[in-house]
Each structure stands twice: as structure tokens, then as C-alpha cells.
Computed example of a mutant assay.
Amino acid sequence: TLRDTTFVQNKIGNYELHRLLEKVPNSGEGFPLKITINKDLTGFKLSITDKSGLRNVNIFKNEDHHILQEKFYFLMQSLVDRNVFEQEEV
């Protein structure tokens, strides 16, 4: 399922998904999203960074990023639908 959802296995065996969260599709302007699932499928890391990849960005702090939030939720829901993640009520 991971490869079907465009995860790529890296040299050490972890699975990575890279997406650019953009307000305007195909603009190249946005924040890189990276999801890494460890090779034994017991844990994951998720990060949204600036273009350099050095500083984390919180797209949920600023209402100006509403479109990016919707795109993030859409991507995450598609991963839930494909059983990559499970959704829990909080």
C-alpha cells in the first residue's frame, strides 16, 4: 500500500512521501511536507518545513494558510482511506 500511495523506500529501508503544499497548484511556491515511516512500520515522522528544509513551519498557526490546511487534511484523509493511517477521535 505504501508504494501505491507514492511512498518511496530510501537506502536504509524507511518509506518516505514528499509533497509540496501549494496555494496555487503547480506554482512551485509552498511548503514541503515529508512523511517518513520506519522500515518495520511501527512509527513515523511528519514535518512541514520552509523551502530550505531547515526550519519547521506550523501551517495551523496562521489563518492565511487555510488552503494549505485543507490540502494537508485532504492528503491525510486519502492515507486514512488507503489504510496507511488510522483515524482516532480525540
Score class of each variant (00 low, 15 high):
residue 36 T to F: 06
residue 65 H to W: 14
residue 17 L to S: 03
residue 82 R to T: 03
residue 49 T to V: 08
residue 43 G to E: 07
residue 12 I to D: 07
residue 5 T to C: 10
residue 54 L to N: 15
residue 30 G to F: 06
residue 23 K to A: 03
residue 38 N to A: 04
residue 16 E to I: 10
residue 22 E to A: 01
residue 37 I to E: 06
residue 69 Q to M: 12
residue 40 D to G: 14
residue 61 K to Q: 15
residue 37 I to C: 08
residue 56 N to V: 15
residue 26 N to P: 09
residue 39 K to Y: 11
residue 20 L to I: 05
residue 47 S to V: 15
residue 90 V to L: 10
residue 54 L to W: 15
residue 87 Q to W: 07
residue 2 L to M: 04
residue 37 I to Q: 08
residue 74 F to N: 13
residue 11 K to Q: 03
residue 76 M to G: 08
residue 40 D to M: 09
residue 62 N to T: 14
residue 44 F to D: 07
residue 81 D to A: 08
residue 42 T to C: 09
residue 78 S to C: 09
residue 11 K to C: 01
residue 6 T to A: 01
residue 85 F to R: 07
residue 43 G to D: 15
residue 32 P to C: 01
residue 28 G to V: 06
residue 80 V to R: 02
residue 20 L to R: 04
residue 70 E to R: 10
residue 81 D to K: 02
residue 67 I to G: 01
residue 9 Q to K: 09
residue 40 D to T: 14
residue 87 Q to C: 08
residue 72 F to I: 02
residue 66 H to T: 12
residue 14 N to H: 08
residue 22 E to I: 00
residue 72 F to G: 12
residue 32 P to A: 00
residue 32 P to Q: 01
residue 41 L to D: 05
residue 77 Q to L: 12
residue 59 I to T: 14
residue 10 N to E: 02
residue 11 K to R: 01
residue 59 I to Q: 12
residue 8 V to I: 05
residue 35 I to K: 11
residue 25 P to D: 13
residue 73 Y to F: 07
residue 61 K to P: 12
residue 25 P to E: 11
residue 59 I to A: 15
residue 78 S to R: 09
residue 52 S to M: 12
residue 40 D to L: 12
residue 24 V to Q: 08
residue 90 V to G: 12
residue 64 D to P: 11
residue 8 V to F: 00
residue 74 F to W: 09
residue 48 I to F: 05
residue 10 N to Q: 06
residue 20 L to K: 02
residue 42 T to N: 15
residue 6 T to G: 00
residue 84 V to S: 04
residue 85 F to I: 01
residue 43 G to W: 07
residue 30 G to P: 11
residue 88 E to N: 10
residue 46 L to V: 14
residue 12 I to Q: 04
residue 17 L to C: 01
residue 12 I to A: 09
residue 59 I to G: 14
residue 39 K to V: 03
residue 23 K to Y: 00
residue 51 K to Q: 13
residue 85 F to P: 10
residue 33 L to T: 02
residue 48 I to N: 04
residue 14 N to C: 00
residue 22 E to Q: 10
residue 78 S to E: 13
residue 43 G to S: 14
residue 57 V to L: 13
residue 79 L to F: 04
residue 36 T to G: 10
residue 42 T to A: 12
residue 60 F to L: 13
residue 62 N to L: 12
residue 80 V to Q: 02
